[in-house]
Every structure is written in structure tokens, then in C-alpha cells.
Design a protein around this nucleic acid. Structure first.
Ligand SMILES: [Mn+2]
Ligand SMILES: [Mn+2]
Ligand SMILES: [Mn+2]
Ligand SMILES: [Mn+2]
Lengths: 232, 232
DNA sequence: ATAAAAATTTAGACTAATCTAAAAAAATAT
DNA sequence: ATATTTTTTTAGATTAGTCTAAATTTTTAT
């Protein structure tokens, strides 16, 4: 009889599909970007590269599973259950990125698409062993924080280089764009996680910045670059 | 804040789906087990844990893509294209198994289900870097040979312990059953890859074998076990 | 050689995830 | 306050992969 109860419970706990995991992860990241405000159907359609109609269908489904808070036309946020799944996917994504860079020697511009696949591998044991194998890293190769095994995301305060005070040395801690083109551009400028930057001057003309890298060389970076360089 | 570039879109139709990859892999392994003879619909249904009707549908589809040789009611074999995909999947499966055991410390009885997922990760670069990282292993933790990056499967000659000559020391090189129960049973007997075995006697009554392990201790193994222990 | 059994394929249906087109609701502008 | 535009949802299809039930082909046994 206890077997039966267990089985019924298991049936109602329907596993989360690959697609559902992606929606939950994207809702998490977009909510974060929105400072905790509801995410809109259109934003989800853009990020998932699907149509708004498809998103509406999926939202009804995720709401039926109690993974999101959803009232028609009002946008969505994650429930506690939904956030737990989202954080697990993000944890796996970022741990695998560390593996790809630190153990296999990939560049930080080459790993995102592979991590998009690896983040769906379903084995808690694997995730935790991987974490240990990597030395329980706190940040991924882009400087993004890695949620712990209890599903807690460390809160990190970011500043943008474009808003940094003049003549103050700051450390580069992350990027807010992960496109290979941007990352490769940073490679060319020799700007990497942990380097120090000091803004000497901001051009009136194009908002480009004259900065000192590692207390050593001087270079100019565009506003576009400075806006997406996170420092502390 | 993050720029989010995800691809939710399913792999496009010219690519091979997870499901198709699984069918091709299973067709390869069953053909191997059949000494090169055609694989039947029912055997595939059993291995894929689906029904014969579903297999028929998939066979038509794989044949349309020129991945299998298929004439209705006649069974199937892989084409050169199909075999290439099958070997790539098997290579990835076995390399990941080596990773799980050698790097993450899993037991050989715990890895199959995880490797079933990892074998579908699509990145040749990743596979080859993983291979290098692992020291280009030639065999997986169960003693199965790993196809090389050119898609060639090393040919290995196997003998079963149940057929080994009496009083001749042989080395344990593999298993022909991969169930956790069997592998855990071997763990209890302290039988692992590379150990040596010498058959002293075979019981008339139940075909069980009296063997010397590592030129040291004496033990009895059932016919069921001896049949699935591969030696050379 | 024929009948019975087994294996395989076909027919028709279902679910998940997507689409386009149309309807409905909300937001914005006059 | 009303009209227009934008956003979101619904309606109705489509595709991949699966199912059950029925039909067909092949194999086996008499
Ligand atoms: Mn990433
Ligand atoms: Mn990252
Ligand atoms: Mn395996
Ligand atoms: Mn194996």
C-alpha cells in the first residue's frame, strides 16, 4: 500500500522536459535582469527564439505544474519549485563551463553552446562530484556566480566600468554580454577576469574611455565595451 | 545582468535526433552481437523499450535518410553513413564512462545511465579534447573498446571464462552484461578488469567453476557469471 | 502443402512543442 | 473618452515519436 502511494506521488511529479527547463532558466535570468519584476510573453518569445503564441501555450503548462505564477496578460515569475529547477540548471551550466575552460582548455568564447547541452544532464550525483572535482568554484569563466547545491544563488553586486569613478583602480569581475565576438574582442585587448582597470578620462565626443590596464599599459575602450564590463 | 543567447529550437531535420542516434547505436550493437547479421524489428523493440509498431515507423524514417539498409520484413543493417553516426555515439558513451570512473570516482556499476545522456552531446571538439584529457584510452571501464576519432572500432577477440581451458591462467578483459546487479556481484567477488583467473574444475552438477583469482585465492563462480566474464 | 503461429507493417489516434492567423485585452495617443 | 497600436491569447494545423488494434507477410509445424 505504501508502494502505491509512492507511485501515485511519482506520477503526479511528472519530470521536467528539456524545453521546460529552458523556459524556467530563461524566466529566472530575465526576472533577475528585470530586478525581480514579471517577465513578459514577448521577452520570452525573443529569448527562446519562438513565437509569442508558443510561449503562451508553455506558460499555461508551467502554471498547471505550479512552476510559475501566471495570470493571463500579467507576465510571469517563478514559484519556489520553479526557481529550484531554474537554479539547478544554471548551476550545471556554469559548473560545466568551468570544466570546459579549466580542464579541457577551451576559451571562454567557445563554451556557451556546449554548456547549453550539458546543463540538462540529469544526475545530482554527477553535478556534485563535478563540483568537487573542480574545487567547488564560486564563479564561472565569465564571472557569473554558481548557485550552491542547496539551490542558493550568491548575490553579487555589479558596477559597470562605464560608471566607475575616475582615477580609481577597480578589478574586472564579469561581463554582461557573453557573445563570442565581445569575448574575443576582450581577448585582443588583453582584458580578462581579475585584471585591474583605472579610468583616466571619458571622451566628451563618443564616451570612449582612456584606461590603465593592470597599472601598466594605457588603452582606449569604447562605451559599448565599458558598458558591458563589470567591475568592483 | 546577462545577455541571454539560448537555442530552444530543436535540432533541424537534416541532423540526427536523440531518438535516431539511439536507434543507430542499438542497431550497431545488436548487429555486432549477431555476428553481422540483420537485426529484427522485435529485437529492436525490446532494446529500445518501445513496441514493434514504433520500430517499424522509425525504420522507414532511417531508411529514407539512407542510414540503414531496410527491406520490409527482412531486418536491417547500417549503411556506411549510419555506422559512422553509431560509432560516434558509442565513442562518446565510452569516453564519458572513462571520465566518470577515472576522474569523478564513480563505480563501474553507476555510470551507464549518465553516459546514455552524455553520449548525445554534440561537439566534435569536445569529444576530442575529452579523449586527450583522459589520455586517449583504448577501453572503457567495462573493457569495451573505444572507437577512434576516425570512426574505426578496434576489433577485439573475446573468450568467455565458461569456455576457458582448465588450469590455464587467463586475464579478465571485459563483461558481456552491464547490469548494476552483475557488476556489483563481481565487486563482491573482487573480480575486476585485469585480474587473472585459472579454472581448476567445472562441476558436473551445476556447471559452476572452481577458480583461482590472481594466483592467490580460490573461489566458486556460477555458470551464469562465468558465461559473462570475458577473458584472454 | 496447408494451416497455425509468429513477426512485421499499416491504420488511426495521442502528446509535446511548435507554427500562422485571428480574436481579445491592455497600453498608448489623440 | 475614444481610437489606434501593441501585446497576449486562442484556434486550428503540423511534426516527431509513440501507442493499440488490425491487416499482412513470413516462418514453423503438421
Ligand atoms: Mn553560458
Ligand atoms: Mn557563463
Ligand atoms: Mn554503458
Ligand atoms: Mn561501458
Amino acid at each position: 500500500m505504501y508502494e502505491i502511494t509512492f507511485n501515485l506521488k511519482k506520477l503526479s511529479f511528472d519530470l521536467t522536459s528539456f524545453t521546460e527547463e529552458n523556459y524556467l532558466k530563461i524566466i529566472y535570468l530575465l526576472t533577475e535582469r528585470n530586478n525581480g519584476n514579471e517577465v513578459s510573453t514577448n521577452d520570452l518569445a525573443e529569448q527562446t527564439q519562438t513565437k509569442a503564441a508558443s510561449v503562451s501555450d508553455m506558460l499555461r503548462k508551467l502554471a498547471d505544474k505550479s512552476l510559475i505564477n501566471y495570470k493571463k496578460y500579467q507576465g510571469v515569475t517563478l514559484t519556489t519549485d520553479g526557481e529550484k529547477i531554474a537554479l539547478s540548471v544554471i548551476r550545471k551550466h556554469r559548473l560545466w563551463e568551468v570544466f570546459l575552460v579549466n580542464k579541457l582548455g577551451f576559451g571562454w568564447d567557445e563554451i556557451h553552446d556546449i554548456a547549453e547541452q550539458l546543463e540538462h544532464i540529469d544526475s545530482e550525483d554527477l553535478t556534485n562530484r563535478l563540483d568537487t572535482f573542480l574545487g567547488s568554484p564560486k564563479f564561472d569563466p565569465h564571472g557569473d556566480p554558481i548557485p550552491n547545491s542547496q539551490g542558493q544563488m550568491p548575490s553579487v553586486v555589479y558596477h559597470r566600468l562605464s560608471e566607475a569613478p575616475l582615477n580609481k583602480e577597480v578589478a574586472m569581475t564579469g561581463v554582461s554580454v557573453h557573445s563570442p565576438a565581445f569575448l574575443q574582442h576582450l581577448d585582443k585587448l588583453q582584458i580578462k577576469l581579475g585584471c585591474t582597470l583605472k579610468v583616466l578620462e571619458i571622451s566628451e565626443f563618443d564616451k570612449s574611455l582612456n584606461v590603465i590596464l593592470n597599472n601598466d599599459s594605457s588603452l582606449f575602450v569604447s562605451y559599448e565595451v565599458a558598458k558591458n564590463l563589470l567591475v568592483k
